[in-house]
């Protein structure tokens, strides 16, 4: 009893710690977005949506990478936990990618002058969104776990191919999406970079938090279903 009380790494404590750390980083990131990061000289205050836009697309990238790796593991090991991980991660990734598209649209309207245009990066992002929408549809269809999980895993592995294409497309193709980072990019102000890094870390933790909670719910559902029979 005493050991359990003092053990700092019990599940409950970990969960609490992760929750508060995520909350603190998200608050700090939001504060930095509005009060610490300088106002961009050309685009003005609307550019501040950049931090949220990058945060969501980064976490979506992590989520879909988890789906990819978990799907490979599922095909090799065929244990249910990898299938659960892939599915839960895909759901959260889909939510994050949708937010990315919405925030991008809100940003594009005043700056570019349109909500949407078929530029290579936007087109490949749209394809990515459709691919994972199909994946989630595949999952929601009828049928037992075995076959469905296997087909979904294969689909997820193939769909993942589009993810690097999204990132490369703006560099190798003519488009309207800016290349800001890396070779050929314009770069950002140091204070903007610090803000971005805090936001990215916050979103990474938020993803982990959501993923753990989603898996917990999924396992409860499975347990209930099994007991009900």
């Amino acid at each position: 009893m005493k050991i359990a009380e003092t053990d700092p790494f019990s599940f409950k404590e970990m969960r609490k710690a992760l929750f508060f750390l995520t909350f603190a980083l998200m608050v700090l990131g939001t504060w930095m977005t509005f009060f610490y990061a300088p106002t961009e000289v050309v685009m003005g205050h609307v550019q501040r949506i950049f931090y949220f836009h990058m945060g969501t697309v980064w976490a979506a990238t992590v989520a879909f990478t988890v789906v990819f790796v978990a799907s490979i593991y599922y095909l090799v090991k065929e244990t249910a936990k990898w299938d659960t991980l892939a599915y839960c991660s895909a759901e959260i990734g889909m939510l994050l990618l949708t937010l990315t598209i919405i925030t991008g649209s809100i940003w594009a309207k005043p700056v570019w002058g349109t909500w949407w245009t078929w530029d290579p990066q936007l087109t490949t992002t749209f394809i990515l969104w459709v691919l994972y929408a199909v994946y989630l549809l595949l999952r929601s269809g009828a049928g037992g776990r075995g076959k469905k999980a296997r087909y979904s895993a294969i689909f997820a592995i193939v769909a993942f191919v589009d993810l690097p294409v999204v990132y490369i497309s703006a560099r190798i193709k003519r488009g309207i999406s800016p290349v800001v980072f890396g070779p050929g990019g314009g770069g950002i102000d140091p204070a903007m970079m610090q803000t971005l890094l805090v936001v990215l870390l916050g979103f990474t933790l938020l993803f982990i938090l959501l993923l753990r909670e989603r898996i917990r719910i999924m396992n409860m559902e499975t347990a209930l279903y099994t007991r009900g029979r």
């Binding site: 300088p38 106002t39 903007m192």
Partner: peptide, 16 residues
């Protein structure tokens, strides 16, 4: 339709 490309370098007033 007229669209504008956004800058690829994000600068603050001060830096510029």
């Amino acid at each position: 339709l007229l669209l504008a490309k956004c800058p690829t370098k994000y600068e603050s007033d001060e830096a510029r």
